[in-house]
Structures are given as structure tokens and as C-alpha cells.
Amino acid sequence: MKKIAVQVDDLTVAYNYKPVLWDIDLEIPEGVLMAIVGPNGAGKSTLIKAILGILKPIAGSVSIYGKPYEKQRDLVAYVPQKGSVDWDFPTTALDVVMMGTYGSLGWIKRPSQKEKKAALEALEKVGMLPFKNRQISQLSGGQQQRIFLARALVQDASIYFMDEPFQGVDATTEIAIINILKELRKAGKTVIVVHHDLQTVPEYFDWVTFLNVKKIATGPVKDIFNDDNLTKTYGINYKVSIQE
């Protein structure tokens, strides 16, 4: 039996007293590359934010390798939705990647050469080193997403949470990103991705969670990624042809 990387118990999250996530129980085993799928408003991003303590749940608990998230921050990296930040902010690609090192630095302490070196290496990994000094608004959507990925890589975490990393990126970037995610899995990391494109689920991921306010199903893609669960999640008679 594999170790459990993320455990969610009876999690309920509400906006203005309207629950957007109902009583979620979820166990994510170590070393999986997992997609969270569900229709708009299913609470996919909310689930990630609640796990990371960005949103306060009204009930339930979350543990990362058996301990509360607050004690395990060093083990976790987070890639928010690209649209959640202002890309006109006066800063460079390198500086954004450096922000990934702030967590290990803690309050007040400034990044040094060591952090800069780590950030440059992460930029290299995502193929963005030539753009390190570019102002972030001057980058294309795909390049911005790579910068976000580099910022997560620099944290050198065990668990990566990514909120729609493929949104608005070109095909080349999508392949580059999925290759990096697969490498992470190979290195024993756990990767959890909010994903929209159902067609690519079997190709990209080995684990999947169906979510629509409640958890519909979770498990290996080959066992549970089927029309039955898709229909339960999306409410209509859903059919995808799964490539064998």
C-alpha cells in the first residue's frame, strides 16, 4: 500500500453560506499524476485552495503526509490560475520565479545568490532562460504559464498543485508542461492538476478525481475514467472515446 500524500476528510467549503464543496473525502496516494475534472462551478479550484489554506472551510480537515498543511508548507508547491494575477505588475520573469523561494526564506529574510541560482535553473528547465529579464507583460500566454511552472519547480516540493496550467497555452507549451509533470511523477512527486480537456485525461494522467460539488469518484484512470462517471459528473449523457 502506497503512502497517502494528501488526505481530505469531510471537507465543506461555502461562499456566503452557500456550499460549493459538500463533504469531500479524498485520499491522494503518493506519486500519482492526478487530474481533477468537473464542470464549471464544480469547486475544482476551491478544493485546491481549501487544501492549501487559502480558503477557510466551514467543516472538515486536510492533512499532508499526516500533518496539517501549516506544518508541511515546505512540501507543497502551488501554481494558481494564470488569470489570477495582474501581468502588468512591474517585475521580470526571473523575479516571479524567485517568489517561489520566499516560502523557505520565511519572513523578512531576503533572497540571496543561492535563491537566484535555483531560480535560473528552474527557468532553464522550462526553456525560459533567454527571457529571464523580460517584463512579464511582454511574455505570451504560454510563456507566462511556463514562468508559473518554474516558480513551482524552484520550491522543490513533494506535492504540486496546479490550477488549469494548460489554459490559454499553445500546443508546444502544453507538451512541454506535460513532459515536465511526467518527469516530476517519475521522480516520485505527487502532482494534482485541475484539468478541463477530457480528451487528454487518459493520455496525460494516471489518476483522476471527478468532482461536482460532491466527490463523484476517485481512482486510477484506467479503472474509473468511463462514461458512467462522466455522466454522473457532467449531468448529461457523456461519451468520450478512450484510446486503448
Partner: peptide, 22 residues
């Protein structure tokens, strides 16, 4: 001077800042 880094990250990306414990 003390909190430049914290001001920057929470202004640019409040979600990341929260997840990192700032």
C-alpha cells in the same frame, strides 16, 4: 525595507503568498 518581499508577493499574487504562509 523589512517587508519589501512580503509586500511584493502579496500584491502580485495573494494566493501564492497565502499558500507560502505570508
Amino acid at each position: 525595507f523589512a517587508f519589501f518581499k512580503e509586500l511584493k508577493i502579496s500584491t502580485f499574487d495573494a494566493g501564492l503568498a497565502a499558500s507560502l504562509g505570508f
